[in-house]
């Protein structure tokens, strides 16, 4: 698969409001130009999920630019949008697997952006796709589950499938919306390790929304702190201080 070396992703003055007059994102400016995990932390409701969904246009931002693969994603529609979207892999908190499809079929849905619906309907995947899917499945340790239905897996296994599905898209960037929040601590670490490995192997940035600050610091190459729709910290993970955390989450009684 072709490795993407371009300028990854730039967000310029991004604003979004679900209801007029109640902005969720206020003038976000971010440049993503290095591979590895970029952790986005911040309290619930501060717009972390909205930010990720504005990047791949599952949500249409109110204003601003998202520069990706040499186009402004906010200005494209239809086929053009889908052609870029297929290079943005997304991982979800609740995994969002298609429960009644088998594990391998779920992985191969990552190729839907590359094929016609007719071919997809007839399950006409290329041999390359099928090989990649099985190799990826083996890499995430689920080789024996290929033919099982996705709803028979445990949470950690499902998230591995979710990540593998995103990687099947041959992404230039990964978006992960709280991928570990529904998992136990050990599994959460394993999932972060997997994301880190894959991001490095594919040499792409992985934007990860995450609540667990110490877990984020352990894996991230960079951290972004958000509060009230603004970016309030952007820098190396070890640069985060208690003062920053107070500013991001508010209050201090929760800090021991």
């Amino acid at each position: 698969m072709a490795e993407s070396q371009q300028n990854y992703l730039q967000i310029r003055n991004l604003n979004h409001e679900y209801e007029a007059g109640k902005p969720i994102l206020r003038g976000i400016d971010l440049n993503f130009d290095q591979p590895g995990i970029i952790a986005i932390i911040g309290p619930s409701g501060t717009g972390k999920s909205t930010l990720l969904r504005c990047i791949n246009r599952l949500i249409n931002p109110t204003s601003g630019e998202v520069l990706f693969d040499n186009v402004d994603l906010t200005s494209v529609e239809g086929k053009e949008l889908r052609r870029h979207r297929r290079h943005i892999g997304m991982v979800f908190q609740e995994y969002n697997l298609v429960e009644r499809l088998t594990v391998i079929e779920n992985l191969l849905t990552g190729r839907l952006g590359y094929m016609s619906a007719w071919n997809a309907w007839r399950r006409n995947y290329t041999q390359d796709d099928i090989n990649n899917a099985f190799e990826l499945l083996e890499m995430v340790g689920l080789k024996d589950f290929a033919k099982q239905r996705a709803d028979s897996l445990s949470g950690g296994q499902r998230q591995r499938v979710g990540i593998a599905r995103a990687v099947m898209q041959d992404p230039y960037v990964l978006l992960a919306d709280e991928p570990t929040s529904s998992l136990d601590p050990k599994t959460a670490v394993e999932i972060m390790e997997l994301m880190d490995t894959l991001a490095r192997r594919k040499n792409i940035p992985a934007l990860v929304n995450i609540h667990d600050v110490s877990l984020a610091q352990r894996f991230a190459v960079r951290m972004v702190g958000m509060s009230g729709g603004h970016v309030v910290y952007d820098g190396p993970p070890e640069g985060i201080t208690e003062d920053h955390l107070k500013q991001i989450y508010g209050g201090e009684s929760w800090l021991s």
């Binding site: 791949n56 297929r86 943005i88 892999g89 997304m90």
Partner: peptide, 11 residues
């Protein structure tokens, strides 16, 4: 599930 498949760039 729809959101996830849409995110793959599927038509």
């Amino acid at each position: 599930q729809v959101e996830a498949i849409r995110a793959t760039g599927a038509s």
